[in-house]
Design a protein around this nucleic acid. Structure first.
Lengths: 203, 203
DNA sequence: GAAATGATGTGACTCGGTAACGTCGACGTT
DNA sequence: AACGTCGACGTTACCGAGTCACATCATTTC
């Protein structure tokens, strides 16, 4: 980076504003909350950011992905890594508990408002709910795969992963609710314990 | 129906061929299998049936629904009814077992080839897989709701329903495979037993 | 300083999906 | 037998999502 470019950048005469992707996410969430998902066009989102439709689709494969692109792979990786890092003696459920801890810890309290708004928007739209469910399945699969690599039988791995992620989803819903103020890690542990108890009572 | 209309119908001078909806489903599945889901347009499907795009969308809310419209509500109802009809003494898992029996029994062997083709097409397309997962969730919810009406706690109901429908999905996959020739009811019972064992071993 | 790079814009296009309105045969009523 | 309703479909026109080929221009690299 040359001295000139530093100056130009600092003075704000850069050709485009930086952080386009994040600004698109913010604008999209705002507009979806204001007017609804269907009533908001990709053009509107792009224009609000001072950019065109094409640029939007260069950052996100489709309209709804603007709300999910951030999570999916990152969260999968966190879960898989935590499972792999669990002690050899850990049972499948213990490994899953560790993974849930790791994932929950990434949601610091400054993200709560964003999460809450996102939840409302997603809950109000079939297409977005489907995408959320798809993400859930993706995380279950990633977790189950990581368990399988530890030698856990497939069926067991899938059930343990599903149990864990259902616990996480429930905890996340509580966390995003302005009423409750506990950290997500605590909520997730509670929820996981409840689900394990219910599962044990099934048999 | 008058005598005249009988004659007209028999002679085939009716304004349009009957069974438009089913013929659309058949044409869609054929085309999807031939050229792929993305490569076939709604126009193609409609034209093959001798009808226009508009008519397609009068029968199905969107393109992918042509492969799912048949199932969803019907299957939900079958599951819910069977749960409701289970003896009062039945445990949640026993009620679910009865529901799976009822659902499996509706898939007679003459539907196997259709099911097999459908599975291949769905498996090859993200959009369709998502829709299938959404249907799965819908059936889980319907089953869990029916269990809750019997007084089963929500968490228990959801877990039992999820366990049951995972068993069904696995069994269905085997059933649709030309290699195995057992009736779906048997496969479902086997799969359900396996999953119950794995679930019990989790704790 | 020339060439490569990378982020963006432009314009045109396909296709999914919707809506207003028109057509015509089937059927019931009188 | 004439009439009016209704149901299933067609026609036309339109909007928005998503794609593509091509152009632009500041930054970076050699």
């Amino acid at each position: 980076m040359t001295l000139l470019s530093h100056i130009v950048y600092a003075v704000g005469v850069a050709r485009w504003e930086p952080n386009t992707k994040e600004r698109l996410v913010q604008a999209a969430l705002d507009l979806f909350a204001e007017q609804g998902y269907d009533a908001t066009t990709v053009n509107e989102i792009a224009e609000r950011v001072g950019v065109t439709k094409m640029t939007f689709f260069r950052h996100f494969p489709d309209k709804r992905e603007v709300l999910f692109a951030a999570g999916q792979e990152v969260h999968s990786q966190i879960l898989a890594d935590a499972i792999a890092a669990a002690p050899d003696l850990a049972t499948p459920l213990q490994a899953v508990a560790a993974a849930l801890d790791a994932l929950s810890a990434t949601f610091t309290d400054d993200r709560r408002e964003f999460a809450a708004r996102l939840r409302v928007v997603v809950a109000g739209q079939r297409e977005l709910r489907e995408r959320a469910a798809s993400k859930h399945n993706g995380l279950v699969e990633a977790t189950a795969e990581a368990l399988a690599k530890r030698g856990v039988p497939d069926l067991t791995a899938t059930l343990a992963a599903e149990l864990g992620l259902r616990a996480f989803d429930r905890a996340f819903a509580h966390w995003a609710d302005p009423a409750s103020s506990q950290p997500l890690t605590d909520l997730t542990r509670q929820s996981f314990d409840e689900l394990r108890a219910a599962s044990a009572a099934l048999a």
